[in-house]
Design a protein around this nucleic acid. Structure first.
Lengths: 349, 349
DNA sequence: GTGAAAGCGCTAACAC
DNA sequence: GTGTTAGCGCTTTCAC
């Protein structure tokens, strides 16, 4: 039975509050809902509030949800909860959503990219009021799915090429420019890019940003060495780094699309007995926790993922309240954090 | 309206499936629920299944929940989503719960330990079938709260002193024994403990385990230097480490209750120009991601937090299915991972 | 300003 | 084995 466990009743209903305050249940409903409270006489409202408090009344969100179609529930899809990029996003988003009165259902999509639509269908069945998506590729069928069904949704960290939904992202092009400018200022001439998967906006835009920044610094961008890692992982970074070193000569600096790729590059330098930054400088992207403690401390581009999560929550809240407002893009400025993994190239020492 | 957004109907009801298959809605309900399917003639079941598929019927969990009091929803309380100890627990738990058909509502309790009861009350109002608690102190009112209300719940990582609820934890005493044995074997005589908050079982049991292991190695456990950090953070670890070095002479090795505390200790060694492991050896606890890359690579005690999360999900599933089964404790064995932060003490070199 | 009544979609006790 | 009926607790027309 609803509201009972092992036959022991635990829940107070609207009707009971109504009886205690000598009014009808519908009046109690109106009095308890701030939006409709003005329909009820102040004196009655007060009486009802007191009765509700006395009985310890807790509204039943399930019943309300069945009636209204809303749920105060928000779904968040992440590629990997344990990833230090996405965990802070989740943390920032839940923090803000909690303040706004939403509870959060998390879905760890993992490898099963294809199962996403199913997951969202399940969330819709639960009447979620909206979705925060940290998983989308640059052109993702999931986005069309949400739009067709009028399900409010916002993107975070990764955006689409088209701006069909609101999104909050870091300025990936600017981030790469900061990285390349830094390396160029140190005197590097042969700068390579350790790229991430280009199906995601992060990998794609950072790669393009790298090329633009190289050109802006007077290099032949098309000739700059570049290898694309299969995934944003340390292992995939190492694999791509080996290809980079094996197929190009004279590289003195690496701009990685992500800190984990940079750490994979560290692994390869160890393997080959190359020093960093002595032989090769490396700069990462994200400034994830602990990269200040690795050896050498990683120079990187800082992004506040927690803040991205918070802003995504705000955008979603707006999208839910005003379903017909146009999509908005929030672009957060990244910041160069100089540590010990970058220095002047060997020849100029 | 339920099932509609902007007036556009999107949901198929049981009744519509019933009409198409020429039976009553209740028959459809029975046919669609595996547990009651046997009540319906096989031929009819098949007809209904086909009709449901044709219409794209999706059951409404909200309506079912209102009726049954169950929800296929599980709440997980963590102290901090972004913490690299709890994120993998969350990840392992959601992975397994997902397989079992549950969706997960996460609650980041943060500092607001006192708000926990309120959070759980909200989750109960949503009819969660059970709770996984990663937040409890050694004697937590939240546990009594759940038990009184017959809400299935299991503890993970941190347990209570009493075993009122099922729990899955690492063998903290064994972990500290592995740590102390390792340091002792290296020749250390003056071993200190950098302890965690003793209100949590992890801090408490590791501290006690340290003392027992010291005694087992022939040391005067009561005389062993020990400082308790306020929190399991790098900053609190640094503060406690300073106290340790300021108030005790001749320490050659530190067994920390947690990796973050150990990294705080690293920070202090840097500050004071002491080398690790040259001057002082340090061993951590948890083996969280990236501690293999810090300088020096951290020797530590490995715990699989993801596996703890999985097992917690299993225990919860059982607790939900058999509410009257006795509490079970699952104790996972930790493992010593030797890296570069431990070596023989200076005098014996 | 408040009460009455309907009904969201489902399941389970009861009838046949 | 299947249909009938009632009702989970709430919100929201519709009366007055």
């Amino acid at each position: 039975m609803a509201g009972k466990r092992n036959g022991k009743r635990t829940t107070i209903t609207l009707k009971e509050v109504a009886e205690l305050s000598g009014v009808h249940a519908s009046t109690v409903s109106r009095a308890l809902n701030p939006a409709t409270r003005s329909m009820v006489m102040p004196a009655v409202v007060e009486r009802i509030l007191k009765a509700a408090k006395k009985l310890g009344y807790q509204p039943d969100p399930v019943a309300a949800s069945l009636r209204t179609g809303r749920s105060s529930l928000v779904g968040i899809l992440v590629p990997d909860i344990a990833n230090t990029v996405f965990a802070p996003i989740l943390s920032g988003a839940t923090e803000r959503l909690d303040e706004q009165g939403y509870s959060v259902i998390v879905s760890d999509v993992g490898n099963e990219q294809g199962r996403q639509i199913d997951l969202v269908a399940k969330l819709m069945a639960r009447r979620v009021d909206g979705l925060i998506l940290a998983t989308v590729s640059r052109d993702d069928p999931l986005v069309a799915y949400c739009i067709e069904r009028n399900l409010p949704a916002v993107l975070v960290n990764r955006a689409e090429t088209q701006s069909r939904l609101s999104a909050v992202v870091s300025d990936d092009a600017l981030g790469m420019q900061l990285a390349v400018d830094h390396l160029s200022e140190l005197g590097h001439k042969r700068i390579a890019h350790l790229a991430g998967p280009t199906r995601h906006s992060t990998g794609f835009l950072r790669r393009r940003g790298f090329a633009q920044a190289m050109a802006a610094n007077g290099f032949d961008a098309a000739a700059a060495p570049c290898e694309v890692a299969d995934a944003f992982t340390r292992e995939a970074g190492a694999v791509a780094m080996r290809r980079l070193l094996d197929t190009h000569r004279g590289i003195t600096a690496i701009a990685a699309a992500n800190d984990l790729l940079a750490l994979g590059a560290y692994d390869v330098l160890h393997e080959r007995g190359l020093s960093c930054p002595g032989a090769i400088s490396i700069i990462g992207h994200n400034d994830m926790p602990l990269v200040d403690m690795v050896a050498p401390a990683l120079t990187t581009i800082r992004i506040s993922h927690r803040e991205m999560g918070r802003q995504a929550a705000d955008l979603l809240h707006q999208a839910i309240e005003q379903p017909d407002a146009p999509a908005r893009n929030v672009v957060l400025p990244p910041k160069l954090i100089v540590r010990k993994s970058t220095a002047a190239p060997p020849s100029t020492k």
